[in-house]
Amino acid sequence: MSYILNRILSMLLTLFLISAITFAVTNILPGDVAMMIMGTQSNPEALAGLRESLGLNDPLLVQYGRWIGGMLTGDWGTSLVFKEPIAPLLLQKMTASGLIVLFSMSIALICAVPLGVWAAVHPNRWQDTASSSAALLGVSLPDFFWGIMMILLFARGLHWLPSSGFVDPGEDLLLAFRHALLPSLALGLGLMAHLTRMTRATMTGILNQEFIRVARAKGLGERTVVWRYGLANAVGPVMTVAGLQVGYLFGSIIVIESLFNYTGMGWLTYQALLNRDIPLIQASVFVIAAVVMLANLIVDLLYVLVDPRIRLS
């Protein structure tokens, strides 16, 4: 129990640091919110007045305090580009992104684990070569390149799936699924390749351990030895790596969502960055980092379930 409590406390501390870093980085931006609102050609006196009323002349620490206070009380400010309150906007976009992130992670895990195990069981044979080569190719191509290939093939060539846009699952579940499929695949392929390599390396290590030899010496069949005795030990490490890859996914969605015009967090962040929408940049960068951290926390807590050694220490 104290392990879980420790992890949560540690997360809160990191969250605080994340907010500080986010705020610091975005405050190096040339130009400020007042300039963004009134435009560069505006009257300097009016600008100064707006600055004063927005509190931009206060010390940075005071501004940070005000910002973090707003974040804590649910007042996340208004986006300069979208002219909307930021909190509901982020919630909506995060749902859209959560859909493709979960989707791609599932695709990747379902394919990567069997492939990786398969390669580890046949080291240096054709099964290993085939799966390892495919995985190597997978990690070597930029994911937006996969995206372009899929647009060319499934959207333009075969006309199976739409190549752009986002549909709310609440409106039309099937259509939403069709729109989410290509971005998820584009995200999932690289991830799958990475996880295949990881699973293979982990399983290779496990299969060389003494308890595997003991299991064989008991007369257990290879299937039981590999898929029960071996895999049960790989679940934790593979899960951890998958959790770390959530961060990678939230980086990739910026590119992929822009490519597919899928209006989620990545797309939103990109728009905010392009237009220097400072309140929106701050909020979305903070939210992404927080979600990534939360995902890792969940993995850490799940680890307790699959590995008894952590449960009791």
């Binding site: 351990q209 003494e210 308890f211 003991v214 299991a215 005795y229 049960a232 030990n233 590995d307 008894p308």
Partner: peptide
């Protein structure tokens, strides 16, 4: 120390 499967 390593002869037994740690997760069973």
């Amino acid at each position: 120390m390593t002869s037994l499967n740690p997760v069973f």
